[in-house]
Amino acid sequence: MSTTTISVNKLTKTYNGQMAIEDISLNIQQGEIFGFLGHNGVGKTTTVNILTTLLDLSSGSAEVCGHDVVKDSMSVRRMIGYLPENVQFYDALTLHENLAFFARLSGISKPGDRIREVLQFLEFTGFEHQKLATFSKGMRQRVGIAQAILHKPEVLFLDEPTSGLDPQGVKTLRESIIRLNKELGMTIFMNTHLLSEVTKTCTSIGILSGGRLIYHDSLAKTLEAFPGRDSLEDIYLSIGKQF
């Protein structure tokens, strides 16, 4: 029996009176890869920022792994890993130094073994002593995944993880995400506007439009519910037209 890992109830966020997201409610079960779809600027990052406790909510409530994101934010942070869009690091430090810093912040006092383990899992060895300044965008995204899973989180939040990557980079990252879900059982919440990626990676989707959640279901049911539509892109556009 699956358990709810992320629970969002009537979540609303306003910035200086402007509504960013409105009345969002959704439940994400343990082990899902949830694709959060929507155009740029519809509130996907705002939602992730609230769920990762980086941003205060205006009204409603949200829980991650049973912990309230407002009242018990420190417990939420212990359970999650986060990869922001355009992730950056300390360029003057080496890969190992960067990862060691974030590992220690997560309570791993001697992170050497864990760093090696994570880099091996991601098939990203041989760069430990290189400065991040020399890394490509694709390499940085993999470092971003590495820092996010160092402390073995239960939930991984990824904000546009494939943004700006070349096709090989996209493929490598997609494979890593699927392995994290299948082999380590992580629940993954992924913001994206690339529908092809959702089809290849996600088990369920939610569509955000104008700050409101207009659709939420499993990917399989979504594809069944729209017969005659060739692709998720068609379905997405069809749902979008209804709202």
Binding site: T53, Y82, Q88, F89, S106
Partner: peptide, 18 residues
């Protein structure tokens, strides 16, 4: 400024850091 410029603040605060 270093942390803000390197955009690492969100990574730090997604950890249990007050």
């Amino acid at each position: 400024v270093r942390d803000r410029k390197a955009f690492v603040v969100d990574l730090v605060f997604s950890r249990p850091v007050s």
